[in-house]
Nucleic acid binder design. Structure first.
Lengths: 138, 138
DNA sequence: ATTATAATTGAAAATGATTTTCAATATCAT
DNA sequence: ATGATATTGAAAATCATTTTCAATTATAAT
């Protein structure tokens, strides 16, 4: 997956490669679901049992800063993270299994311009997120 | 504003009307910005100084349950609430002053259907939020 | 109006998530 | 190999939210 890329990115930005970080990176890079810090902690400890929860928080912070992961907002909470995509992509989340799928969405431009005209706002960013049931859960 | 409506709604749902609740309702119903529990607490205490923060949390919980307010998700955090609109509306937030403006957005149907077709998901809900600068701040 | 009952209150304590501090350890450039 | 320094995990601190509880208050029944 992106594991190797992420490790390289960390190193290129002056961060050191450690077993703790490798375990966190391996866990998050591979997941198709958004994971909370504690979920990352539990899964990553299978690979590196000495891992501390604090290190999970610190590593997630760095990965977010490098835009390799992104925070996922959901009705149940907003602490989960998932591997990010290049460019402008939106998320589609399965309400049953948590499966996350990205999709492109810049067909919105016309719509956004019309909202801008009507409201007088200068619009610089948008969040679009879809919820439903994935192929397997529907 | 919606103050009276909200109080009636609370009462109709078996909740009692108290000075503490009136202060919270007055504060949130009138605000054009999303407010965090502590912001509500501070503002509402100007009207009812004996108010406790716990009561703010409890009242916000009830207002959300009655769908009179809704939680606002932002990059800086997701603890703020704002007066909700009837029907399906989306939020436009000013990144400078926090001003919130609602807009209608169901022109998305075609787009959502196309994503559904491509991904195999049955899509039941969507979140769209725009960020930018309001008329006054741009 | 008075009363009885049950909801509501605020304070304090408990919980849960995240951040900071710190001494020990591990990475990596030399 | 060595040394400078980033990183670690544990414990403590902080911050947001929830729970507990005895006192108070709104309201329905009288």
């Amino acid at each position: 997956m992106d594991t190797q890329l992420w490790l390289t990115q960390l190193q290129d930005n002056g961060y050191r490669l450690t077993d703790a970080r490798r375990a966190v990176v391996d866990t998050v890079a591979v997941s198709t679901r958004a994971l909370t810090p504690v979920e990352v902690f539990d899964q990553a400890r299978e690979q590196y049992p000495a891992l501390g929860l604090v290190t999970v928080y610190r590593t997630l912070e760095k990965l977010e800063e490098l835009r390799l992961i992104q925070r996922v907002h959901q009705p149940q909470g907003c602490q989960a993270f998932i591997s990010a995509r290049e460019g402008h992509q939106h998320l589609l989340l399965c309400q049953n299994c948590g499966q996350a799928t990205f999709f492109e969405g810049d067909d919105l431009d016309g719509f956004i311009q019309s909202v801008s005209r009507k409201t007088g706002y200068q619009i610089t960013e948008h969040w679009l997120q879809l919820f439903g049931l994935c192929k397997d859960c529907r």
